[in-house]
Write a protein that binds this DNA or RNA. Sequence first.
DNA 1: AAGGCTAGCAACCGCACCAGA
DNA 2: CTCTGGTGCGGTTGCTAGCCT
Length: 307
Amino acid sequence: MGRAPCCDKASVKKGPWAAEEDAVLRAYVAEHGTAGNWIALPRKIGLNRCGKSCRLRWLNYLRPNIRHGGFTDEEDRLICSLYASIGSRWSTIAAQLPGRTDNDVKNYWNTKLKRRLLGGGRRPIRYAQQPRLLLMSPTGGAASTALERMQLSVQRRLVGLQDTPGLPFYGNLWPAQQSLLSPAAGYSGFWSHIQTSTYPGRLNVQDHQHAWGSSGGGGTTPMSTSPTGETAVGVGSSSSTPAASSVTFDGDMEDEIEMLLQQIGCLEEEDSRLLIGSEAGSAGSWSSCSTPGVDSVFQGYVQGHGQ
DNA sequence: AAGGCTAGCAACCGCACCAGA
DNA sequence: CTCTGGTGCGGTTGCTAGCCT
């Protein structure tokens, strides 16, 4: 079963591209274009490469006006804001950054921004000096995607409270995390701080506490500190969430996260109305992040996906 | 100086979507 | 309507330079 592979993987060359291969591909595409058929292209020009590999090489490195590295603060902000808004739609995000490719943006996020903002990563950080916020799934694996987006949204809120002129919005992330998420502050203090400082009278803290698996009484706190000093916030599994509240979740962890994201989105919407007095639209707004263009991309994405 | 480890990056893999036959 | 081939995309892996012990 399954579809036939696009090429004979055993016979085509893999691995890094040689300068000669680049030159052949670049010359052909410059003169003829791709003719809409990447699969047939390598045969035409005598390259022993998979068509998909040729396409990737062209799009990511040989295309004119490609920029590598040297991401600016403004680009950082845009990437983070868009990621918080639409998730890992790297091609959509890259489309807002002239000269950047989806692969570049994705790598930049995974290797730099993600670590800077969320901690963790594919490999453990060996020489961590300060407590880091880790997101753990009930099974112990690293959480990602929707959960990261939610955390980003929360962090944007936190840093918004401590606006530091001249710094990116995450500039003082760790002090904020340390003060708010320290074991001494306690888990409930985390959400209470968000409510009292950011959304007085508007955010149902209990809902969020229970959504994250905190019990109303007698349950185990989802926050713990490892022997290495890392602070881990557990996303509550159903088994660790006593029914001490009227708020219950029938879905899995991802469902709960999406629910939180929707709530955050509603708060964003309300904020934008208050702050800029605009018609934010029913899907929410991210204008308050002060990153031009994000809102329109987000709205476009939402409309395109019927959210 | 050497070995181990990590970050960063390039490239591959596999799935989903779409259009044409 | 179904099948097939091409394309696009996100996730993941492999390689390597550089840092640390």
